[in-house]
Write a protein that binds this DNA or RNA. Structure first.
Lengths: 128, 128
DNA sequence: AGTCTATTGAGAATGAAAATCAATTTTATT
DNA sequence: AATAAAATTGATTTTCATTCTCAATAGACT
């Protein structure tokens, strides 16, 4: 849990809260919001502000990813390039592999650093 | 501006406010938020709640599209399948054509109805 | 014109996220 | 171990986007 990147304005300290928040994201494979995580960590006495703060830190440090989904921000322990599948009925969000063709996508407008791909549809559960 | 789809629980009425909001979205090619549009329509005396309400209606009726970007919802007059390019520095969002390969993407998890693809990077302006 | 009812708009309510700040805890240094 | 300096915490407040409420208004239809 150290910052390998160069962008470290203030030296970051390790706290049990930060580790707990990190672990909570890694342990879950749904894509929790900050509020979801706070509910889960409440019994350990971790405050809401601390959850928001450390999620932001963890994203900046590249340990987790923030996913913008339907106007809310969810957190994803999978930091590899990947796509998402999203059920328009139940709202579940799955990680799926990013098609090779997309990984090679380029643009004349900007130098592509990162791509976001989400497939929206009705999942098997909600079709039945 | 009539609803071609079958899902019309309450019969919709046409108001000059709704038309003004629709036109405002169509006239802009940046991707405004509800607040942006309200600022623009304030001088016509259109209330904030009305902007939010009608944007939701227009989306439901398929006249405009809602785009979830960095935790905020922006509106897009382009209802065709298309992708977005987003500058991580200045925040600008462009419409770009959706690669054919993505259009044909399928998934075992769900029946794909709609795909969202965003390329993130630094645009020409912000590189120079 | 008259009736019915969806829509409007001002303001209140909600809710997520960010900011505040004194108290606490880490980390580096004796 | 004890100490000092500074980043972090958490209860709370603040901010701000979005939704809700409801009386007044204005489309649509006869």
């Amino acid at each position: 849990m150290s910052d390998p990147s160069t962008a470290d304005q203030p030296p970051r300290r390790m706290t049990w809260q930060k580790r707990a928040i990190h672990d909570a994201v890694v342990d879950r494979h749904d894509h929790p919001t900050a509020q979801d995580l706070h509910k889960e960590l409440l019994h350990q006495g971790i405050g809401l502000a601390t959850v928001y703060r450390n999620l932001a830190h963890l994203v900046k440090e590249g340990h987790i990813q923030a996913v913008s989904h339907e106007g809310e921000i969810r957190y994803d322990c999978n930091t590899d390039q990947h796509a998402h599948a999203s059920c328009t009925v139940c709202g579940t969000l799955w990680d799926i592999p990013l098609p090779e063709s997309v990984e090679q996508t380029s643009s004349e407008i900007l130098s592509v650093e990162h791509v976001t791909l989400t497939l929206h549809g009705v999942c098997r559960n909600c079709t039945a």
